[in-house]
Amino acid sequence: MNKVDIRQFSLYAAWLVSVIATLGSLYFSEIRGFIPCELCWYQRILMYPLSLILGIATFQNDRSVKKYVLPTVVIGWCISLFHYLEQKVPGFAEIKPCANGVPCSAEYINWLGFITIPFLALIAFTLIIIFMLLIKKPNKIQ
């Protein structure tokens, strides 16, 4: 693979991850009936638009989208990490950003003892960050 192929693949892979994360989120809430907590909503607010933004960028081969996507994904990553720590680390459970509705420490799924919905979001945000970092600025002279 040459550099152009890796850049295009990275953009496509980031888009694919965002689509899978969005569809997975909708599956958990709309099909399985899991009610999202407040932190889940924040993660959704940051992930859902990426499906559209990265999709357009992929088909336009617009690598400049990195400067818009990367800050959004880093914020989502931080929220996902905080949410996961709140579920798994007892000290974080005392911090209560979720005042109403479903508690943020609730675990609808717990696969293999550590894979929860915020963990899945954390992985998705991490993968998108990696793929965005693999996209280099286009050369001025081509």
Rank of each mutant, 00 (worst) to 15 (best):
F125Y: 08
D5E: 15
W111F: 14
E94I: 10
P90H: 07
W41M: 12
L127Y: 01
S80T: 02
F82R: 01
R32I: 02
Q8W: 01
P118C: 08
T72I: 14
R63V: 12
I135S: 01
T72C: 11
P118T: 00
R7L: 12
N139R: 09
N139L: 07
W111T: 12
L50T: 00
P97W: 06
D62H: 05
A14S: 14
I141Q: 14
S80N: 05
I20M: 12
I31M: 11
F119R: 00
C37N: 15
E30H: 10
I128F: 03
L133T: 05
L122S: 04
P36H: 05
I117W: 04
L50Q: 06
L23C: 10
K96D: 14
Y68E: 00
L50S: 02
N110E: 11
E107L: 05
G33Y: 09
R32L: 13
V89K: 03
P118A: 05
I95R: 04
C40Y: 00
Q60W: 11
R63T: 11
I135N: 06
G76M: 00
L134G: 08
L134P: 04
L39Q: 05
L120I: 10
L122R: 07
A57R: 02
L23F: 13
V19L: 12
A57M: 04
K3N: 15
P36R: 04
D62I: 01
F125H: 01
K140F: 07
S25I: 00
Y27Q: 08
C104H: 07
A21R: 03
I128P: 00
Y12Q: 10
Q43L: 07
A106E: 15
K66W: 02
Q87M: 10
F125N: 03
L85S: 09
Q87D: 07
L50G: 00
I31C: 04
L120S: 09
E107Y: 02
G113L: 06
N2S: 09
T126N: 05
E86K: 12
L133A: 10
V4P: 01
N2V: 05
F34V: 06
F114M: 09
D62N: 15
Y12G: 07
I45N: 09
S80L: 05
G113F: 06
D62F: 06
R63L: 11
V4D: 15
R7K: 14
C40M: 04
A121P: 01
P71N: 07
L85F: 13
I135F: 00
L52C: 12
K3R: 14
I53F: 04
E30V: 06
A13E: 08
C78H: 05
Y48C: 02
S51A: 11
V19A: 04
L54S: 09
E107Q: 15
I35Q: 15
A21C: 10
E86V: 02
V74P: 00
N110C: 03
N61C: 05
N61M: 09
L133C: 14
P90D: 13
L46G: 02
Q142K: 07
Q60R: 13
Y68L: 08
A106R: 11
S64W: 02
I129G: 07
Y68R: 04
Y108T: 06
K66D: 06
W111Q: 10
I75H: 06
P103G: 07
Y68F: 13
L23W: 05
S105F: 09
S64F: 01
E30N: 14
G91D: 13
I79K: 00
Y12W: 13
R32G: 01
Q60M: 13
K66T: 12
F59V: 08
D5T: 14
